[in-house]
Amino acid sequence: MKIGVLMKQVPDTETKIRIKDDASGIVVDGIKWVMNPYDEYAVEEALRIKEKKAGSTVTIISMGPKRSVETIRTGLAMGADSGILIDDPALEGADCYATAKALAKVMEPENFDLILCGKQAIDDDSAQVPQMVAEFLGMPQAMVIDKLVVSDDGKKATCYRRIEGGAKEVLEVDLPAIVAAEKGLNEPRYASLPGIMKAKSKPFKEINLGALGLKAEEVGAKGAKLKVKKYFLPAEKAPGKIIPGEPEDAARALVKMLREEAKVV
């Protein structure tokens, strides 16, 4: 099988986010960049399918600035075979629509049998790119999947997702399709240290818009359907209140507060 994995480089989840003075974005200096955790599940799942189906290949595709190379290399060190980075200054300010368009364009000629990705990136949390890529490529989509079974003949995939009320929904899609990973799909492996050394010599290409046959107006800030007006941090939470006393008295006090102060009951 030929498997493509969409990957985004995001700030480490421990990062203390600071907003630029003009509120146009976040301060990126000193940020530690990592692979989007949901994309890690996608890479891991791709590698597991590859290990089961002889002759399979895994290609990691990312769009982002130059530094994204290091995160693609993490995927290669985990065991993926090749990487593609779409990197062009004109892509700055791309929204989900523009991003999906560029990603779809780069994947079109690859003829993947299966495309895996995370259900969302943990930086902007849009959770829209996978669906849009599926639309652009005219592929079936299965989103927020925590179990994936590819049929022996590689023609179908059975996808499991949790839905409201603790129930599971089971989807069957014809391949090629795009499947977006939810937490629980698997336990991602670490890049092994020898794998890190091998990653250096794996095929990797960088593509700009010209090579893709796209114009800046289509996919950059100008092609975006959504403009971010400003960034701001959420207001600091007020400290909680602990009600002292015996359970009965405390419950009474709590109800009183809910009624009189919070006015919710």
């Binding site: 190379v69 290091e70 890190i196």
Partner: peptide, 14 residues
């Protein structure tokens, strides 16, 4: 080197 950083960060994550 990028590889040295990746080795370090991988062990740190572990």
């Amino acid at each position: 080197t990028p590889e040295e950083r990746m080795v370090r960060d991988t062990v740190a994550t572990f």
